[in-house]
């Protein structure tokens, strides 16, 4: 590779300052993602198109990546990405979003994209809370957690998103935390290659609007991630009670079934001109 070694600067739009709070996991995610891009041999982002919805994580590519990006309404990044991919299949289409964006308001789109095995990459930053709006309960908030809208503790069970996406048919689904930088970078590399839907859930610290109410700063959140993490291979032998409050990490699905484009081309091959 020419032009020197890896630096995230080569991929960032010049003249802008990243907007995330101190201790936010988005910094680690940007580093690991762009490292994966570098390791795959991309010297710039010209082969990519990014889509993101609304929320802190949606600001990762838009407008900070020096690339084409569409910053959509809340929850709609996956459908917009689907349109981009179908219209220009040669582009690598990558969605960034938070847990509220992807697994709350956009959950239907996520499951259908997994069912279709749409040939895009979806990266869901799971900070377990609606961070940008001040820390409301999310579909991923752990039982008992205090948020601004669960002052008495969260009384709903969190959604096991990586597992749901795997069950719905995505070719690849993995979960790691920002405390697992190497595994995360490898997961991004895998998610940027091949066909079908490739999904990575990243459990990420929000010290400002989650940790603060849980009595944890950024370091304590990372320590908790390390202590609570259980590799999926071990988790398979554990009961529900043992797994409560734990973060199951690893690869939930990794297969090479035909993607949406393969299936569409196969069907369209049967079309006869009028």
């Amino acid at each position: 590779m020419s032009g020197g070694g890896f630096s995230i600067r080569r991929y960032l739009r010049p003249g802008l300052k990243l907007p995330f709070c101190p201790g936010c996991g988005c910094y680690t995610i940007i580093n690991c993602f762009l490292k994966a891009v570098w390791e795959l041999g991309h010297e710039d982002l010209s082969e990519f198109a990014f889509c993101s919805g609304i929320g802190c994580a949606a600001w990762i590519p838009s407008p900070y990546f020096n690339a084409d990006s569409i910053h959509t309404p809340h929850g709609r990044a996956i459908p917009v990405a689907t349109g981009v991919k179908l219209a220009r299949p040669e582009l690598k289409v990558v969605v960034f979003g938070g847990d509220g964006d992807i697994a709350g308001i956009g959950c239907g789109h996520l499951i259908h994209a997994a069912r279709r095995n749409t040939d895009i990459t979806v990266i869901m930053v799971n900070n377990m809370v609606y961070g940008m709006t001040g820390g409301q309960v999310a579909p991923t908030t752990p039982l008992g957690a205090k948020t601004t809208t669960t002052p008495l503790g969260c009384f709903e069970r969190p959604l096991d998103v990586a597992n749901v996406v795997a069950a719905a048919g995505a070719n690849y689904s993995a979960r790691w935390t920002t405390a697992h930088r190497r595994q995360l970078t490898d997961a991004f590399r895998r998610a940027l290659t091949g066909r079908g839907l490739r999904f990575v859930e990243v459990v990420s610290p929000c010290p400002t609007n989650f940790g603060r109410r849980m009595g944890m700063d950024a370091k304590a959140l990372l320590r908790w991630f390390v202590e609570a993490s259980v590799p999926i291979e071990e988790a398979r032998n554990m009961g529900a009670e043992e797994l409560r409050g734990r973060i199951v990490v690893g690869t939930f699905a990794d297969r090479d079934e035909p993607g949406l484009l393969d299936r569409l081309r196969e069907a369209y091959g049967r079309a006869r001109p009028p």
């Binding site: 198109a49 889509c51 569409i70 959509t72 309404p73 929850g75 709609r76 996956i78 459908p79 917009v80 990405a81 689907t82 349109g83 981009v84 991919k85 179908l86 219209a87 220009r88 582009l91 239907g108 789109h109 259908h112």
Partner: peptide, 18 residues
């Protein structure tokens, strides 16, 4: 698509893709 938001969303994506 799976609903009307997704339908117009995909249309918008395709439009930006030309």
């Amino acid at each position: 698509m799976e609903d009307e938001m997704a339908s117009l969303g995909a249309v918008i994506g395709a439009s930006w893709a030309g």
